[in-house]
């Protein structure tokens, strides 16, 4: 045998073709979004199935930004999503740490209850939630959305954070405590820096969930001032027509903060930070 056999070019080609097909399939809706966003109004129906319109325009974008309330929706969404992500991650980190490190009475019960909350379709509880929010006088406020989103995301985020804490050896904390740290110091100086990927992932997950949530936003918000962007998108649907071009342009713009957010946290998502801690 003369060295390692090279894989046949056919195999390689096949592999890349499969990957390309997969990526194409996943990205096609995004491509279509962009395509319609740049298609001039008069061509939308006449060239509906062409892969790229014969003329492209940015008019939809300028209209959306300057002539609609979209920037307001945007601000609302950013505020709601960021606050929800921060609050959820903070609470989930605390709870996840406790579940990972401490034994206490009722721990398994709390975990079971948290799991149960994940089993119900949201539609089932939308009416009671509406009643509660209304009674609290929080209808049409961003606060209500933040509270509801935070509540719904905490169980999953807690499980996520717990698994991240579980993956950090207990020895590290104990070593820090032997080195003179209090438990809190050990958490801050040793555990927290190692949990950054976990915090990043949780932040990202909750942010996206809040950013794209429609159901509760639709139910709890009616006034134009406090609409989030998914609800705002629906304003492009009028009784007699749908303004596809502007709607898609708004959709493209809505992707931007999500992308920025993930670019920002992606360096914390890099794995392997804990390697080298224990064993050889």
């Amino acid at each position: 045998m003369a060295g390692i056999r090279k894989p046949s070019p056919l195999r390689t080609a096949g592999k890349y073709a499969a990957l390309a097909a997969y990526v194409g399939f996943a990205l096609f809706p995004l491509y279509w979004l962009l395509k319609i966003a740049v298609t001039p109004d008069q061509l939308i129906y006449s060239e509906g199935t062409r892969l790229w319109p014969s003329a492209a325009t940015l008019a939809n974008f300028t209209t959306v930004v300057f002539q609609t309330d979209f920037l307001a929706y945007f601000r609302n969404s950013v505020a709601v999503s960021l606050t929800t992500a921060a609050a959820t991650t903070l609470i989930a980190a605390g709870a996840g740490y406790a579940f990972s490190r401490f034994h206490f009475r009722g721990k398994s019960l709390i975990i079971a209850v948290m799991l149960v909350t994940q089993m119900f379709p949201l539609l089932m509880i939308i009416a009671p939630i509406y009643k509660i929010v209304a009674a609290a006088g929080l209808l049409n406020s961003l606060t209500s959305l933040i509270i509801v989103y935070t509540a719904f995301n905490i169980p999953f985020a807690t499980f996520l954070m717990q698994s991240f804490f579980d993956s950090i050896p207990k020895d590290l904390e104990e070593a820090a405590m032997m080195d003179g740290c209090t438990r809190f110091q050990a958490l801050r100086k040793v555990i927290l820096p190692l949990t950054l990927p976990g915090l990043g992932a949780t932040l990202g997950f909750v942010f996206t969930a809040a950013w794209s949530e429609l159901l509760f936003a639709l139910m709890l918000i009616n006034s134009n001032d406090t609409m989030t962007f998914p609800v705002g998108l629906l304003t492009f649907v009028s009784k007699f027509s749908v303004d596809w071009g502007q709607m898609m342009a708004a959709g493209v713009l809505a992707l931007v903060p999500s992308c920025l957010f993930f670019i920002f946290i992606q360096r914390y998502l890099v794995q392997g930070l804990t390697s080298g801690a224990v064993k050889g």
């Binding site: 590290l172 070593a175 040793v190 820096p193 190692l194 930070l273 804990t274 080298g276 801690a277 224990v278």
Partner: peptide, 12 residues
């Protein structure tokens, strides 16, 4: 002071 079986060095 304690030396752990896993060494428990702070990886960061």
């Amino acid at each position: 002071a304690m030396v752990f079986q896993s060494y428990a060095l702070y990886p960061h």
